[in-house]
Nucleic acid binder design. Structure first.
Lengths: 184, 184
DNA sequence: ACCATAATTGACCGATTGGTTAATAATAAG
DNA sequence: CTTATTATTAACCAATCGGTCAATTATGGT
């Protein structure tokens, strides 16, 4: 018995995710958010809440697609452990030298940008991080070095940051080779 | 034939470095810069230039102490290559779970915060990064795996970010162990 | 003592920040 | 058609952003 929403919630959430992904929490202004979503501040506020709430939605969105996809692959037992880590590193190489790659990883960004200031975000990010690390551990179980979780995680996390900082595909390929040699 | 400077330039540069280190370029407001340096905006502008110039000074300062110290150690041929990488990772462990550790690495922060937007900063950071990677390469020359530069660099860079994201000393110790096993 | 020079201060600038809200528009129920 | 409910818009808010500058203060040379 009232007016309908004019926007596509899925598209708005994707746009939210992308804006915070690119610019971070502080870096994303309402001007950019409005341009990306096509909504006015008031609509955003009414539909989702304040900026922090928008950020939470963006992280949940990222968790639901990018992260979940990676976790699923890392736990896919139709692949060998080595193959799974290889694919994980391939994802890095694929993103190097691309605009999206230079956005980094939304969760890594969130972990470094916000965590000292907002405990809710910190908890959420920490939980997702643990899920990924656990998935890496699962993948490593059948390899020659099942204790390399921290190394693989640091290399992956570090690789994302390196890409953000402008590293080339060649650099990432070298990193992959060395990581694989540890677990081969 | 004119008034003297009332401030200690060394202390002001240290304060500048610390503020940008903690908060990043955008995150550091003049209110914080003024509080940390004890100077008014006008004095800062007269003495050093605008905010971007202050940031350059901060990076140069960081390069001159923290980075140069690490590079010197990595090239110290009174130590074995393995010892040098061990010490590099020890520095990470020492910083984990400390306030300063959670500031991250000023250069890594600069590389990820600013590089897409300011080519001067990008060039400067890239040059310093190459110096460190080259020092790592030198240290690795006498080890069993002289091609592990990218891995060590990614682990170090990644470790810095992990610390910023709240990783424990135990996590960093595990990372160190795994890195050393690659070059032992 | 006087003056030229430089350091310092604090007020002020326009622009932008995140956030709020009254007015308007659209819809479904009665 | 009328009315209650909700979505949407655009104007507005105080606070803060980086930056500027005239006025003040302190110094060394003459």
């Amino acid at each position: 018995m009232a007016r309908h929403r004019e926007f596509d919630e899925d598209k708005v959430l994707d746009a939210l995710r992308d804006v915070f992904w690119q610019y971070g929490y502080d870096g994303a202004s309402y001007a950019q958010i409005m341009a990306a979503t096509g909504l006015q501040k008031g609509s955003l506020y009414a539909a989702f809440g304040d900026k922090k709430a928008l950020y939470h939605k963006a992280i949940a969105r990222y968790d639901g697609d990018a992260v979940s996809g990676a976790v699923k692959m890392l736990k896919d037992d139709t692949l060998s452990g080595e193959q799974r880590i290889s694919r994980l590193m391939d994802a890095l190489i694929k993103d190097a030298e691309t605009p999206q790659g230079r956005w980094g990883c939304l969760l890594c960004n969130a972990a470094t940008d916000m965590s000292p200031f907002d405990s809710e975000i910190e908890d959420k990010v920490m939980a997702i991080k643990q899920r990924v690390k656990s998935a890496i551990k699962t993948a490593l179980k059948t390899t020659s070095n099942p204790n390399a979780t921290e190394l693989v995680w640091a290399a992956y996390f570090g690789g994302r940051i390196l890409i953000k900082a402008g590293a080339t595909k060649a650099t990432l390929r070298a990193l992959k080779k060395q990581v694989l040699s540890v677990i081969a």
